[in-house]
Design a protein around this nucleic acid. Sequence first.
DNA 1: GGTGAAATTTTAGGTGC
DNA 2: GCACCTAAAATTTCACC
Lengths: 156, 156
Amino acid sequence: MPKTSLDALDRKILVQLQSDGRMSLANLAAKVGLSPSPCLRRVRNLERSGVIARYVAVLDQRAVGLPVSIFISIKLEKQKQEALDKFAKAIARWPEVLECYLMTGPRDYWLRVVVPDLDAYERFLKQKLTRLEGIASIESSFALEQVKYTNVLPLG
Amino acid sequence: MPKTSLDALDRKILVQLQSDGRMSLANLAAKVGLSPSPCLRRVRNLERSGVIARYVAVLDQRAVGLPVSIFISIKLEKQKQEALDKFAKAIARWPEVLECYLMTGPRDYWLRVVVPDLDAYERFLKQKLTRLEGIASIESSFALEQVKYTNVLPLG
DNA sequence: GGTGAAATTTTAGGTGC
DNA sequence: GCACCTAAAATTTCACC
């Protein structure tokens, strides 16, 4: 992966595509002050180099019947690499887990889980999370409101 | 916003577009078992009704020089609606904050902040967050690793 | 929901600055 | 490296069944 340092034009392109991933090339080129051809070249380069990881449709959680976001912090018993790997693999398999981070400090994980209701959450806990070996403790908090949720990184 | 309950075909479409928001209509139609026209009609309906909120490009945080994710929990002094609104508006303005949730319990907020380095984080704290009125306490944790990060909701 | 054709957009190539 | 132009290919879009 070549470390293409981004210039001002690349950044402008990224700012636009983060807000509208389906913007037409002509429109994008106009907004960043390029003609379509070099603009497309840059976009393709950003895609190939992995700067643009993917394009996605963002859904409304409530509109699809998944209004409940739950945050879980997890402490593992062991700090062995093996245990961490096992945990990561399980997380990757479970569609309810949208985000997971390994945190500083006492080897904690932090998860965002999305489910349709509290019953589904209980099922997730009982049938999946608590069946994992090596977990020392689990703490859950519930989101009352999503105040902000964006993919737009502060490139400015 | 009409509560269009989603049928199996809508869900299939959403599953696909969550993974690839730029999938061509012909491709999408084939994957869900429709011909392009009715498929496009459904996609447009999903867009108009707000089920599909937007299309975006997802960037690689590290590749754009923003490797640091910090999680902040905040307790407010007052629980007045006015204070909550003020807080929400400030959050919306700050590009470093990618996610913010109002949590159950002791009226806590939970934030995910993205910055290039710890200096930038310190600036964010000193020049923005700590200047807000009504904050009782702030706690920060750092992410060592992003184990999972997806927008794909569990529609299955 | 399907078919087919028109309109638009994307994409690649070539020239000169 | 970009602007400009051209043209082919792919995609989106729409009237109609």
